[in-house]
Amino acid sequence: MPLIIKDEYPEKLFREDGKRLDGRKENELRPIKMEVGVIKNADGSAYLEWGNNKIFAAVYGPRDVHPHHLAKPDRGILRVFYRMTTYSVFERKKPAPGRREKEISMVIADCLRPVLFLELYPSTSFEVFIEVMDADGGTRCASTTVAALALADAGIPMRSLVSSVAIGKIDGKIIVDLSGIEDKAGEADLPCAITWFNEEISLLQFDGDMNLKEMNESLDLAKDALKLIHEKQNEALKCKYIEIQKEEEKNSQENDNGGVDLK
């Protein structure tokens, strides 16, 4: 007899003190940690911890297209492989890529394509491998964010970065950055991504019900949240180089001081 665990969601998604179940305010993001250059053999890579989401992204390219018939003679192609590990969710996920993963891969590729200059690299491919180690709601947004970071780390010319966040509606209120439980039990879910070079929406999916006023409100909220995420992405990219610069400055100062002391 298999053990069947029913999905049980709390009746109320807000606590008595008006905060969300994990203690966040309505427009507050989960803690985000980003790092670049984590995979040695990849051309570019990034790691992201967004709440309980743990995601690796690796970028390879430009390189030959396999299978060769996918190659386009006039432009390069961008391929995204979004995969979830078997242990990333509560119930074991079958390792074969399913319908959901294929869709998310396509959505992320469509979202990132406008920032790349694919026409400059005919008959080549850029490949982004996204591996979700731990999932807790909003992985497609987190994956888009980390994929953009990995592309930038690989030194591929880009118009700008891409940031993404999910907006939702729980208990009649619009909230930013849904966690897993809010995603499942909430009323609406609206992942969106922005390309910063023209500040246009590059990804917008919707699930649930909302009226137009709420939709506008949530897009406004999204923009504020996306700005925060963009800052964090920039910080993560710069961090690697600035640390070395600072260290060198410190060393040189120490050396100078040492010379003075000896005299």
């Binding site: 051309d43 930038a152 780390d153 690989a154 030194g155 591929i156 010319p157 118009r159």
Partner: peptide, 22 residues
């Protein structure tokens, strides 16, 4: 800018010297 790099101004041109790339 198009890539991660160092900003350089040379006469009229603004360049970015990349730090990563192929």
């Amino acid at each position: 800018s198009l890539c991660i790099g160092l900003k350089q101004i040379k006469k009229k041109y603004i360049n970015v010297i990349p730090l990563r790339g192929f």
